[in-house]
Design a protein around this nucleic acid. Structure first.
Lengths: 245, 245
DNA sequence: CGTAAGATTGACAAGCGTCAAATACAGTGG
DNA sequence: CCACTGTATTTGACGCTTGTCAATCTTACG
């Protein structure tokens, strides 16, 4: 059940036809390498493309007054990056490489062409945007209604669900390349408090940390603690526009 | 420069052709009336339509543990409601009438038809979803990085920008049908604290309240206090798919 | 081996939540 | 028109979560 990395999230909604796969492959230009910490696109820049992330972790942030910033999205390979700014005159988000990264530009004209020629694919773009709204809505709920500890749990299970793979001991674990400061930017709390909460979760035996590796010992317990419902994506949506072969 | 209320936000991005206008008009079924406080759609319901709001104020919320809830969006006439849940098996959002409301259902099949036949309109739906993401991102920043007072300012200017009309004294003011408890749901703070912050803003001479009417005496000062940048929507986007006449 | 970035810890202060009670207001029925 | 009743607003007191400041310790890396 392995799919092409780019746009892998589309396959949740529908199986792509050859024509659709070809169009997606044709979408991006030459992949570009970015070093750790490098800014891929800065906020206030003019909008002329979106990005497809091929390798590495990327953080999208909005800057607030005086050095404070809020992380808006943690991007993993297969993610479309920078799309929200399509609606704006100037970019709202700074896109920064967390690790070494490979990404490719997608010119807006190419996106437009998809909408003109492959309506079902266009709908998948639309649905992915709605999915991102749901993710933001859940984060808003987490930030607004729960404690820092609960928000941290939400962050950890979300990442766990996206990237965890079985380790030697059979337990699911993953490498977390974010600094505690960056996690604070995601959660809207200060790094000192991130550290406190991580220590508490570790003392409670819910997680284990070794270097950058993190293991959720009790993933379902942690998920319960978030206070948020489990979302299930729509699959094989029956009402999509007809597929182009 | 008056436009049809439904989908009025589309006109920010492009001028609609007659065929596009006709398709939008054909989109919704018979308008339905909902009384104040009535639930239009409950979370966990199956997803079979979205809604167009024609009249009144609507609050979209997600429930958290034990009576706590987070407001995700304040809907005003012309807004598409319930779209994020299109990506899900079950609805994520409870849609509730704040005032008496008129809204119409849009079956998903009709939406699909638009994508199949009117690519430029499809792109406008896509861009509106991205705009909503930006709005959520700014709210996330506001919640995560600023004080309750600043968040409240953000809420007030946002509503001001959307609905304020000149009053007798020439100042812009508007009717705010939300209770302080509902405002707390929006801001992720408790109603008691909403009240405190409103009083402080009033003591500072930044706002004036009379019943449900609220006037921003110093709108630009309040906007500055939010700490967020002014966003400007893209206008007359040059790269849209060709229009269908 | 030296340096810088990140992690950790402690002490204290501030913002906001929580509880509780009083007041104002709107809608309803007599 | 008024009394009644539920809902929304307002205010005060107090405590907990989180922010802030500062110092130390660890790790990564040249």
């Amino acid at each position: 059940m392995k799919t092409n990395i780019p746009f892998k999230r589309f396959s949740a909604f529908a199986d792509l036809t050859p024509a659709e796969k070809a169009a997606l492959k044709d979408l991006s230009t030459t992949p570009i390498r970015y070093a750790r910490q490098e800014v891929i696109r800065h906020e206030q820049d003019p909008v002329d493309c979106v990005f497809m992330l091929n390798e590495g972790w990327v953080l999208t942030t909005a800057s607030f007054a005086e050095g404070d910033r809020q992380a808006l999205k943690i991007h993993l390979p297969g993610d479309l990056m920078g799309a929200p700014s399509l609606a704006l005159e100037r970019t709202a988000e700074t896109i920064t490489a967390v690790t070494d990264v490979v990404a490719s530009k997608i010119p807006v004209q190419k996106l437009s062409q998809i909408f003109a020629e492959l309506p079902r694919l266009a709908m998948l773009f639309f649905l992915t945007a709605q999915e991102e709204r749901v993710i933001l809505m859940d984060r808003l709920t987490s930030l607004g209604r729960s404690s820092a500890k609960q928000s941290l749990c939400h962050l950890l299970v979300s990442l766990h669900d996206r990237v965890a793979v079985p380790g030697k001991d059979g337990r699911l674990s993953f490498e977390l390349p974010l600094t505690q400061s960056q996690m604070g930017d995601v959660l809207g709390i200060h790094l000192v408090h991130v550290n406190r909460m991580l220590r508490i979760l570790e003392e409670e035996g819910l997680i284990v940390r070794r270097g950058r590796d993190i293991t959720l010992v009790e993933p379902e317990e942690i998920r319960r603690m978030t206070g948020l419902p489990n979302r299930r994506l729509a699959h094989n949506i029956p009402w999509l526009p007809p597929a182009t072969l």
